[in-house]
Simulated assay, not measured.
Amino acid sequence: MELRIFTEPQQGASYDQLLAVARCAEETGFAAFFRSDHYLKMGSVSGEPGPTDAWTTLAGLARDTARLRLGTLMTAATFRLPGPLAITVAQVDQMSGGRVELGIGTGWYAEEHSAYGIPFPALRERFDRLEEQLAIITGLWETPVGKTFDFLGKYYQVRNSPALPKPAQRPCPPILLGGTGAKRTPGLAARYADEFNLPFVSVEDSAAQFERVRWACAEIGRDPDELVWSNALVLCCGRDEAEVTRRAAAIGREPAELRENGLAGTPAEIVDKIGRYAEIGSRRIYLQVLDLADLDHLELVAAEVMRQV
């Protein structure tokens, strides 16, 4: 099982705080640093100093780290046009020496759109736009150098594009899709995803959704074993119950609830729960770290959990 660090900077974080977490993750052996793509806090936290842009952050980390994979869970398709997004991700991939992964979704948080003047269409249209964006982004990246790319969709039209720049990873960086939708989500994953991710979903519900995606792969003749299957879960690890309780309180949660819905408890408890996800085929766990100042948390998991999974 591969362990990755996943942060939620909209809850309140500067670039320097994110860099400290990323460097700690790199030094302690985690495989990747991912961040959310949101422009507004959630819950009762202040959100100060304010939002940071996901791809601006990853561009900085591309130069300030050396080994970590870098990516988003998930970039909101509502935030960016597909052509400029393809350019941005390709450039950050070049800046990192080929360490970038693009997680992308429809966008879902209506309030952040109204807070920053971003259009927020109905869900069906958001899925339609996401599907066109995936076709355009992959099409631009996969077009041979010297050739041009065209796409005529309902929402986006691309004509005579030089399809540049190219990412360092060829033909393109890995694409992550995810979510619990029973219809369109599995179909898009089967067509476009290198990895399918489920955030904050139980073992049982994960198994059911993985199976839907496997069926969608079979319907188009794709081997589902080509996909990496992964989960994202909030982390709250402690050497003893007092430390678990302290870390839960720091993020405004209860230990019992976190044990039920996340990865909480002693290292042994967390190893056991990760094993249950492994049994249904999950091969990566994104550890949602909410207290970015608690670097000892990462060091504990690296020392006591990572070596056992």
Results as ranks from 00 to 15, higher is better:
L177Q: 02
A25K: 04
G97F: 06
T72M: 10
V213S: 01
N197K: 02
D291T: 10
W215L: 11
T148W: 08
V203L: 06
R214G: 00
Q91F: 08
R170V: 14
A31M: 06
L198V: 11
L198G: 00
T65C: 07
R63W: 14
A207R: 13
V244F: 06
F200A: 15
P119W: 08
E279D: 13
P267C: 12
D53V: 13
R170E: 12
T78R: 01
L298F: 06
S96D: 05
A115E: 07
A218N: 12
F33Q: 12
C237G: 01
C236S: 11
G60I: 05
T78L: 11
S44N: 14
P255A: 04
V203I: 14
G221K: 07
Q169K: 06
P9G: 08
E125M: 10
A110D: 15
Y277A: 04
R239K: 12
P162K: 13
L235N: 00
I175W: 01
F79A: 05
C237S: 08
I104Y: 01
F196T: 03
G178N: 06
A135G: 13
E279F: 07
P171W: 02
R247Q: 03
S202N: 05
A59R: 03
P186K: 07
P224F: 11
I285V: 11
D225L: 11
I274S: 02
L292E: 00
G265F: 09
L295C: 03
P165S: 05
E132I: 10
A66G: 06
G281F: 06
T148M: 09
Q133E: 13
P119V: 08
L61Q: 02
L227F: 03
P121Q: 12
G47T: 06
H113C: 14
Q288Y: 04
L61A: 05
P165I: 06
Q157T: 14
R239A: 15
S230V: 08
F120E: 07
G105P: 00
G178V: 03
L227Q: 02
E125V: 15
F30Y: 15
T148R: 15
E111L: 11
D296M: 06
A25C: 06
D64K: 12
A122M: 09
F200Q: 14
Q288L: 15
A182L: 10
H297K: 04
G262R: 08
D223M: 10
D16G: 07
T72I: 09
F196D: 01
E48H: 13
G139F: 07
M74A: 13
R124V: 15
A232K: 01
R23G: 03
E8C: 01
L258H: 02
T52G: 09
E241D: 12
E299W: 01
G98E: 05
S206Y: 04
L290E: 01
A20L: 05
G179Q: 00
R253K: 14
P9I: 08
G50R: 03
E8M: 13
V244R: 00
P171M: 09
G83F: 11
T57R: 01
T266I: 10
S14K: 02
G187M: 10
R283H: 05
V45P: 00
E279L: 12
A250S: 14
A249L: 11
P167L: 08
A242D: 15
